[in-house]
Write a protein that binds this DNA or RNA. Structure first.
Length: 417
RNA sequence: GUGAGUGUAGUUCAGUCGGUAGAGCGUCAGUUUGUGGCACUGAAUGUCGUGGGUUCGAGUCCCAUCACUCACCCCA
């Protein structure tokens, strides 16, 4: 296929047959988030590159090799956002939103860009629902955010998924832990895979997440972060688990969850589904208490998550194979020029009243019009000819049952309610 | 960035030993006079991903390239 008629690698067209479902999913998520008190924020698709380097982290894969970065005509380095949190937090600081009544709860629906090799569940432009909660360091805030994610996912009946949580500790206890970890892995350095050898001193936490069976085996006996949490972090983690228990949210503790974005501390979590292939995380997030001050704002405890729309949709399609579209309430067929004009007029009137109505604008035979009405999935149909126009009456047909009854043409809207 | 698999109609795919393309679904029209779904008849649509090579002749064999898919990595 010629490049002219081929979408760029890793991008997706949402065709009419899918867009109705997509919007339904988005609307449902918005409604649930608003019931949790979250309000929408919209931020630019691109930001200054520096923002992502500072927040997501210079050493992360996302920043090092996956960003769409370019220089604009003013010589500024610009980057298409690889995730949503950084931009949202930039806006929070820029507009002083931390002065609003706390906690501040934000959500957004946006597209993100990462230059990766596409595969199942991984695109170069993908869409994310994100939520951020600022201004509370209480474990209840963690629980509320996790509960929102759980409510969103469970509202779609997407089959089995599980929640895994961990605590990464804070600056002080994680530092302590990292040292221990380097000590431990150094003893086993020879057995580690090549990539992990490289990570050993740079980011040893990553090794815990390695999929290589050998590294997994070594990692199994590595010291656990949870054994090194300081008093405060430990208490916080316990509090989160207690809150989740009291809300009846099931979770599994997974001390190997690390997350690839540097701004996380304390609570991190992932919602995982086994039906997604290798990219099994539908939703991931955590606490990032230091981020806002790092961007020049006031100290502000905060956490959030990102939920992958495409991954959610693919799970939804597995459990809901039938395509959903919006179907006309009525199709007005016609025979002859005069009736065709009348059908066009009645259709317009119905639409003005908020009714989804259709009529023939192609010039098809009556039979072809009926076939078309059937394909559209119209609930009712009506046939206009010279007789109907003269009498003002017509036969209304229920397309599903085939039942017919005579109605007054001026009452169509009422009759099909 | 690394590896494997696949590229033929809108779509899902068939195409033998090399002889310039087929089916199902879908689309459109029709099966007599004013009623769809079923059935039947017919029609339209292809630079066989692209470029090169071998050959009298390539969808088929060889090379390159691009794209898609899956996996590694990373993450949503």
């Amino acid at each position: 296929m010629a490049p002219l008629t081929q979408a760029p690698k890793g991008t997706l067209d949402t065709l009419p047959r899918d867009s109705f479902l997509l919007r339904k999913i988005e609307n449902q998520m918005i409604e649930i988030a608003e019931n949790f008190g979250f309000k929408e924020i919209r931020t630019p698709t691109f930001e200054h590159t520096e923002l992502f380097c500072r927040s997501v982290g210079d050493t992360t894969d996302v920043v090092q090799k996956e960003m769409y970065t370019f220089e604009d005509k003013g010589g500024r380095s610009i980057t298409l956002r690889p995730e949503g949190t950084a931009g949202a937090m930039r806006a929070v600081v820029e507009h002083g939103l931390t002065n609003e009544p706390m906690p501040l709860k934000l959500f957004y629906l946006l597209s993100c860009f990462r230059h990766e090799k596409p595969q199942a569940g991984r695109l170069r432009e993908f869409h994310q629902f994100g939520a951020e909660l600022l201004g509370s360091s209480s474990p209840k805030a963690d629980a509320e955010v996790i509960l929102l994610a759980d409510s969103l996912l469970s509202s779609f009946e997407i089959g089995e998924y599980s929640l895994e949580i961990n605590s990464l500790g804070c600056k002080s206890c994680r530092g302590e832990y990292t040292k221990k970890l380097i000590e431990y892995f150094s003893k086993n350095e020879e057995t580690l895979c090549e990539t992990c050898k490289g990570r050993l001193n740079k980011n040893p936490l990553r090794i815990l997440d390695c999929k290589s069976p050998i590294c997994k085996k070594v990692a199994a006996d590595a010291p656990k972060i949870t054994e090194f949490l300081c008093e405060d972090c430990s208490e916080h983690y316990k509090g989160v688990k207690k809150s989740l228990d009291s809300m009846g949210v099931k979770y599994k503790e997974n001390p190997d969850i690390v997350r690839g974005l540097d701004y996380y501390n304390r609570t991190v979590f992932e919602f995982i589904s086994s039906s997604l292939g290798a990219q099994s995380t539908v939703c991931g997030g955590g606490r990032y208490d230091g981020l806002i001050s790092q961007l020049g704002g006031n100290d502000c405890a905060s956490l959030g998550f990102g939920l992958g729309i495409e991954r959610l949709v693919s799970l939804y399609n597995l459990t809901h194979p039938e395509k959903e579209t919006k179907k006309p309430k009525i199709f007005i067929s016609s025979i002859g020029e005069a009736a065709s004009n009348a059908a066009f007029k009645y259709t317009g009137e119905l639409r003005n009243k908020g009714v989804f109505a259709e009529c023939d604008i192609v010039g098809r035979s009556l039979k072809a019009q009926m076939k078309y009405a059937d394909k559209l999935g119209a609930k009712y149909s009506i046939v206009l000819g010279d007789d109907e126009i003269a009498s003002g009456k017509a036969v209304l047909k229920d397309m599903e049952s085939g039942e017919k009854r005579e109605i007054e043409l001026r009452n169509i809207a009422e009759e099909i309610k």
